[in-house]
Simulated assay, not measured.
Amino acid sequence: MLVLEYKVKGKKYQYQAIDEAIRTTQFIRNKAIRYWMDGSRESKINKIALNNYSTALRKEFKFVEELNSMACQVATERAWSAIDRFYKNCKSKKAGKKGFPRFQKDNRSVEYKTSGWSLHPTKRRITFTDKKGIGEVKLLGKWDIQTYPVKSIKRVRLVKKADGYYCQLAIDVEVKAETRIGHGEVGLDVGLEFFYSDSNGHHQENPRFLRKVEKAIKHAQRQIYKKEKGKNQRRIARLRYAKKHLRVSRQRNEHAKRLARCVCKANALVAYENLNVKGMVRNHCLAKSINDVAWTLFRRWLEYFAAKFGTTVVAVNPRMTSQKCSDCGAIVKKFLSTRTHECSCGCKLQRDVNAAINILNLARQARDGQSRSNATGVGTSTLLGASLVEQVVT
């Protein structure tokens, strides 16, 4: 599945119509969640029942009827996705909270399937044909959609971001595999001092995107509370603050994508730590730094590019990888502040490099034991001046 994202250019009333469609999607999803909560005690509500409920909402509310019928179904599918995830967590006896479905307050997208829109013959404009009044808008972007037939477009999503509105087109095409330039094997140890250290001794610098602009972000946040509630100046201050965070998010995404592509393109085996990032951010002293380095995002891109280049990726248990000697296997206890590994066998390495070698050794053992983890990914593409967009259509 390939996703092309274009900037939407329209008039003020069209942006207002997009906002109305987004609010309607949120309304349908929340009503579906309430319908499930009220009816689950009497009879089991499934996905089909929620789709039928969207039809009942169209008859009851005029503003819901104005939205395309398939877009209404997508809204109930979003509700069912949250419900199904909750059921699976309960069935698998997941530790901690099970993710009970919540009512949404900040929905920012509306999604159409194969109806409710039509592309202009030039494929540089798109018209939304439901009764919300969006009409025809321009598509600004670098990518050439003319090479794909209209029938291959399975989803069209309008997304509201801090810097404007975007249109995402999900195209059903086969993603072609690419050839690797190398057949090496590497282990990666992620950290806060360096973004990652590999088993070859290379250290990738941690960019610290949030830390670099933290002062400007805090200043922008203070400006919000200096403006009077309900006034236009407060809205402008909030938008300025949101744009700064959006820029940081895009920088993290592009950085993780670039590094993951380079690693998978040059190696046949990539080993990394299977970290519990959700549990690690509970440490309030390190939570901001852990979120800033974006380990989970990097892992996601590794798995995507592994499928594209035919690379084997293995997630190993990181337990004792920093304490164990990569040469003789002895346990050398050390504090977190100790950055050099020194063993009685004569092995002296930087702490993270030693851990990366141990991670690679564990991955080789898992591979030889026929316990492989070949990742699969989704097709993506980048825009001029925008970050890469990832879309998973199941």
Rank of each mutant, 00 (worst) to 15 (best):
E5I: 02
G10A: 14
Q14L: 04
A21F: 07
F27H: 12
I28W: 04
S40L: 02
I45H: 06
A56Q: 15
R58G: 04
M70I: 10
C72D: 04
E77F: 03
A79Y: 07
S92Y: 05
G96D: 06
P101F: 01
K105M: 05
S115R: 15
G116T: 07
H120L: 01
P121E: 12
R125V: 01
F128L: 11
K132D: 01
G133M: 04
I134A: 01
E136I: 01
G141P: 13
I145N: 11
I145V: 14
Y148H: 11
Y148N: 03
P149Q: 05
S152Y: 08
I153A: 04
R157P: 13
L158H: 04
G164W: 03
C167M: 11
H183P: 00
G187H: 11
L188K: 09
G201D: 13
G201E: 12
H203W: 08
K212F: 00
I217V: 12
I217L: 05
R222E: 10
I224V: 15
K226T: 10
N232H: 12
R234Y: 06
I236P: 01
K243Y: 01
R250T: 03
H255F: 14
K257F: 03
K257E: 11
R258E: 15
R258W: 11
R261W: 00
N267F: 00
N267C: 01
A268Y: 06
V270Y: 09
Y272F: 14
N276C: 00
V281W: 09
H284A: 02
D292S: 02
W295A: 01
T296V: 01
L297F: 00
T311G: 06
T312Y: 02
N317A: 09
M320Q: 14
C325K: 06
A330R: 15
T340Y: 10
H341P: 12
E342R: 14
L349R: 13
I357A: 04
L362R: 15
R367D: 03
L384W: 10
